[in-house]
Design a protein around this nucleic acid. Structure first.
Lengths: 251, 251
DNA sequence: CTGACGCTTCGGCCGCCGCCGAAGTGTCCC
DNA sequence: GGGACACTTCGGCGGCGGCCGAAGCGTCAG
């Protein structure tokens, strides 16, 4: 039985790249969209540098990571948006109903910060991401009734807000990404990425800590309210949701 | 280092289910949306019944498969549309640019039949799927410019064609699924499933062989032309595409 | 030049898991 | 009841791969 279904072989080989806890931790960390050095990842994952070097070799060879050598540093990042989406999809499949159960205070507060707002590769997620998505929908700029697409008014809004959308390329303009803390869709795709980039440039939100979590600034609250009618209250976690996220119903 | 990131652990555990060639072959086979018995899958994958039994145990325990016991048979199918989408996503990631390279005539003609038309869990794919999607788009029933959503006219079309859409539930009405032979999006989600079910019920197409491939009937060609203006020629593979699909550029 | 540093390679260890055949359990048919 | 059949459990085998520390290589700073 030496010849088997080549598609099954390829699928198994791809999945094997995700099927190790250390590599999974790296891929999740890289969901912040930035480039990490090998030693940062080794420290993050809690393994020896030599071990991590081999993992990176596999991930790069498998096309999941892109690398860039600078002097004695090896920077890696997710290869492209497709890979990021795959990581998100797998992570979302795993999360629903049993979000991170914090073991101590630090994990708990870090988890809450991530739940309030974070980047998901190149777009906004968490409470912030869904609040913005809801606001776009409520204003008729985005429609989710029969799919997930910007409306004509939505296109005009991006234009008037000075957020350019690159419509060349195959990447969809708007796409739903399932949020794994909110368990609801939020805006991804070209428009989601552009909005996130704009928000970081204009400092509507800033990164906190070394990972994906972001915090909405005072200027950001004002801008979100003025442009989209997002109430500051909508950006806070409701106690119920927090509770639910932190004490999920068994496995 | 006994306590690690629980999300990474869960992600790795999930991916491990896909990371075996035998299990991958089962999951791909089950993409036909039907229930298979354990022995059918064992024969399909080319392993002993005992081996496959253990694989099924893991897949069911991991939530990827649902099982149904009937007498001395154990029927399994993909647990739900979410799982099917995950399998598709992984398969699509692997396929682009290097579709199945046939080793002999049988594989080649089976591959061509799959490329012409097949089901992808519960919706239509292959040339058939993209032709229908293109026709819907060309007639203004589906819009892909700023996302992927049915238009008002699209909703009316489904209504008038007598294809009911169940709009309760969280599943999106329309969603893009990337086709791994055509390398273009086609209609999935509630509308895609309803259309596929309707097409099979009305015998616009019939299953051929024991797997996912389907063949458009004469009645089907007529119905697709009358309702959507799909030309019969659009359902045939263009030589260029076939060529490309069968002789991909390296690995 | 020298030492510090980031990364890689290598060898060796260990545990996991996919495979099989044999034996066991439950179901169906005659 | 008896035999065929679908599936499961078990024991044993073999290979893969993740882990580390030690040693090596290139880069950078002083």
């Amino acid at each position: 039985m030496t010849t088997r279904d080549p598609q099954a072989t390829a699928l198994a080989r791809l999945a094997a790249l995700f099927a190790d806890e250390t590599r999974a931790a790296c891929l999740l960390a890289l969901l912040d969209g930035r480039a990490w050095t090998a030693s940062e990842l080794a420290r993050h994952a809690g393994v020896a540098a030599s071990t991590l070097s081999e993992h990176l070799g596999r991930l790069v060879a498998g096309g999941l990571l892109a690398e860039e050598r600078q002097g004695r540093h090896r920077y890696v990042r997710l290869a492209d948006a497709r890979v990021a989406q795959l990581v998100e999809d797998l992570a979302a499949q795993v999360a629903p109903g049993r979000a991170v159960r914090p073991r101590n205070l630090r994990e708990s507060s870090a988890g809450a910060a991530m739940a309030r707002g974070r980047t998901c590769y190149d777009h906004l997620a968490g409470r912030l991401g869904t609040a913005v998505t809801d606001a776009l929908t409520a204003r008729g700029l985005l429609q989710q009734e029969t799919g997930f697409a910007l409306t004509g008014a939505g296109l005009a809004w991006f234009e008037s807000a000075g957020i350019g959308l690159d419509r060349r390329g195959r990447r969809p303009l708007a796409r739903a990404c399932l949020d794994w803390t909110e368990r609801r869709p939020h805006l991804a795709g070209v428009a989601g990425a552009a909005l996130c980039r704009h928000a970081l440039e204009k400092e509507w939100c800033v990164r906190i800590g070394s990972e994906r979590a972001v915090k909405v600034t005072a200027a950001g609250e004002r801008a979100l309210f003025d442009l989209l009618g997002v109430e500051a209250a909508a950006l806070r976690l409701t106690p119920g949701l927090t509770e639910q996220a932190h004490h999920p119903m068994g496995r």
